[in-house]
């Protein structure tokens, strides 16, 4: 039974989608595992539904959406820091705001 703040799109997926913002330190039930969220996540982001090893495909909607660049444990935020595209690299403005804001 998975927390109702999370959406499981397909049973074989490696990730769940966050339905609303969730704060750091909150307890979540993912599958039958209880995890404490390590970082705050906002709506639409992904958390690991199952443990993934470096190089494994990340499944969402039941299909691969890229592969893991590090080992990922259940409940961990899955995003640019631990997965990559198998097609073209992803460009993001990460850090640009803090770098240029006074």
């Amino acid at each position: 039974m998975t927390d109702n703040r999370l959406i499981v799109l397909a049973p074989q997926d490696s990730v769940v989608v966050v339905r609303c913002g969730i704060s750091e330190g909150e307890t979540l039930i993912i599958g039958d595992v209880e995890v404490i969220l390590g970082v705050a996540v906002s709506m639409g982001h992904k958390l690991a539904l199952r443990a993934v090893e470096t190089g494994d495909a990340i499944l969402k909607y039941g299909v691969p959406i890229g592969s893991a660049t590090s080992d990922i444990s259940v409940g961990e935020h899955v995003h640019l820091h631990n997965m990559k595209s198998d097609y073209t690299p992803t460009y993001a403005l990460e850090g640009a705001q803090t770098e240029f804001e006074k």
């Binding site: 982001h45 959406i65 992803t90 460009y91 993001a92």
Partner: peptide, 9 residues
């Protein structure tokens, strides 16, 4: 990416 999408696929 800010909105949670990680890759083009």
């Amino acid at each position: 990416a800010d909105g949670g999408l990680s890759t083009i696929e």
